[in-house]
Structures are given as C-alpha cells and as structure tokens.
Nucleic acid binder design. Structure first.
Length: 286
DNA sequence: GTAGGCCCTTACTT
DNA sequence: AAAGTAAGGGCCT
C-alpha cells in the first residue's frame, strides 16, 4: 500500500466563504498557496483546499470522508451565520464597506497549541519571518504528512518540543521569543497550562490564565482566545486595529488596551471578534 | 497605575 | 552597498 493515499471530497457550502481572504487574513501562517489550492494541516491530516462555485474541493490524506467534511466545517466555522452578521451591523458604514469588500472572510478555528506558539512568535515580527519560524519548528520537530507530491508537517506537540533549547531556537531565528517558547513548552508539560480546559472557561478566566504565560500579554491572549479557544468576543488590538480605532472611531492614540476591548464588547458583544477580523483586513489591505 | 527602555532579528526600504 | 526602519508585543523598572 502506498503511504500517501489521498481522497478528494466536495464540500458544499451555503455560507459566504472566500478561501483566499480567509487564509491571507493573518490568522494562520502555515497554509501555502499553490495555484488555486491552499495546502496545510488540520489535526493529523494534510489538506489541499480549492474554492469552487458551490463551496470547497478538498484533497486530503484523511481516509474518512465524513470526518473530512466535519473537519473542514469546523475549521471554517461554518456554524457562524455571516449573512446575519452583515445584516445586523450594516448600519455601520465602516463595517458595511468592509463586509462588502471582504465578503466571505471567516474566522478560523485553529489548534490552540499551534495558535499559542504562532502568536508568541508574532511579537514585533513580520509575516515572512513568523512563517519561517513556524515552518522550522514543524519541519524539524513535527511528523511529516504526505499529500500527493507535497509533504506537510504536523505541528509538534509540547512533548515533541520537550528537548528544544533556547539555543536551538535562537539558531532558527526566534530572537528573544526563544526563551518564551521554551518556558511555555515546560508549562504545558508540567500541566500548569491546560489549553483544552480553557475551551470551556469564560473569556475573562481563560484570558487571565493565558496572560500568566511568559511572552503572552493582552494582545496575544486575545488572538488565541479568538482564533482557537472559541471566545468570539476576543478583540486583538494590533497596530492595524489601533489605527482603525483612531481613524474611524475617534479613539485616542494612547487609549488603554483594556478600555478599548471593553468598548468593543459594548459595541459588538460576541460579534467583536468578527468585527476585528474585517477591520483588520480593511485597514491593512484596502 | 503607567511611561519608557529594552529585548533579537529579519525583511524591506532608502 | 550600507544604513535605517518597521515589523500583528511583552517585560521590567
């Protein structure tokens, strides 16, 4: 038997979905574009995904068709009703134009561990460098997955990263983030950190836990909360969102992070996360 | 509580 | 080519 058996599945989708803007919206770093396909990993399997008129075409190493559909639906949060979001907030001119420009941009539900490490890497970094860092980790410490002609890598668990030293990571170009990552791996290994448990905690409780970790402050915690821990009120404020809040909503440049998040929650409640994603895309790419 | 210096490099611009 | 700067923050004082 060949080890790289792949199957192809059509996933029909009745929700707005734009694969490209979703994959290029700074949520994930390890999905590579090849022609019309995005290639990456979800849990234990490799996937190549292409947008079609009726939804997505998916080629995968996952042998179970039903599980493939479930995984894809889960990953793209197809349970979220974007049409409703667009209607509910269409009175806001800023958001309304972002909704139209980026229609189908969706939040992604990622693996919490990879998400945490990814955003610790993102601190004062840039996209190409973050990608390089994460791909190094995956390639050197993760399990390879064969998907047709391409090889992708499962993101290494804390156990798989247990022997990684600050020196190793420094050589891979992590800079001052190397120390954070080694410490976070140890937190996870010691059981002091339990990301799965945070899935069922409240936003506030989970955020308090995350910000105890070295290298994780307000912003990075919000990224993990929103992109992986299913806290849709998560409202990460990076430079781009800050500029948007100042330019479009009249906030002061030195407004406090937590006050801004509070304001966002009053404005948008549990839609704050989606609002943030559209604002980010609009401010950064338009 | 909070302003400023510092952290390690890389990618990209002048 | 060399120098400068921005890059999806966080920590410590």
């Amino acid at each position: 038997m060949a080890k790289n058996v792949i199957t192809t599945t059509t996933v029909d989708i009745d929700q707005p979905i734009d694969l490209e803007s979703t994959m290029e919206s700074g949520q994930v770093f390890r999905w590579e574009k090849n022609q019309d396909w995005y290639i990456g990993v979800i849990k234990r399997y490799g996937y190549a995904i292409k947008q079609t008129s009726s939804g997505l075409l998916v080629t995968t190493s996952n042998p179970d068709k039903g599980d493939t559909i479930k995984s894809i639906s889960n990953f793209f949060r197809l349970e979220d009703d974007l049409g409703k979001l667009y209607t509910n907030l269409q009175h806001d001119q800023v958001l309304n134009s972002a909704f139209q420009r980026w229609r189908g941009l969706r939040l992604i539900k990622q693996d919490p561990w990879e998400c945490l490490i990814s955003f610790v890497c993102s601190s004062v970094s840039n996209i190409p460098r973050i990608k390089k860092n994460l791909n190094s980790l995956a390639k050197y410490y993760g399990r390879p997955i064969y998907l047709g002609d391409s090889t992708v890598y499962e993101f290494p668990s804390a156990t798989q990263l247990s022997k990684v030293s600050v020196h190793d990571l420094s050589k891979l170009g992590f800079g001052f983030r190397a120390e954070y990552i080694v410490k976070i791996v140890n937190h996870e290994l010691s059981g002091m950190l339990n990301l799965q448990k945070l899935l069922i905690e409240s936003y506030a409780t989970a955020k308090a836990k995350l910000t105890e970790l070295p290298g994780v402050g307000n912003k990075i915690a919000d990224c993990v909360l929103l992109f992986a821990l299913e806290k849709l009120e998560g409202f990460p404020i990076d430079r781009w969102i800050m500029r948007a809040l100042v330019d479009w909503y009249g906030h002061s440049e030195n407004a406090k992070y937590s006050n801004l998040v509070c304001w966002a929650h009053k404005m948008w409640g549990t839609s704050a996360g989606y609002v943030q994603q559209y604002m980010y895309q609009q401010r950064r790419l338009s």
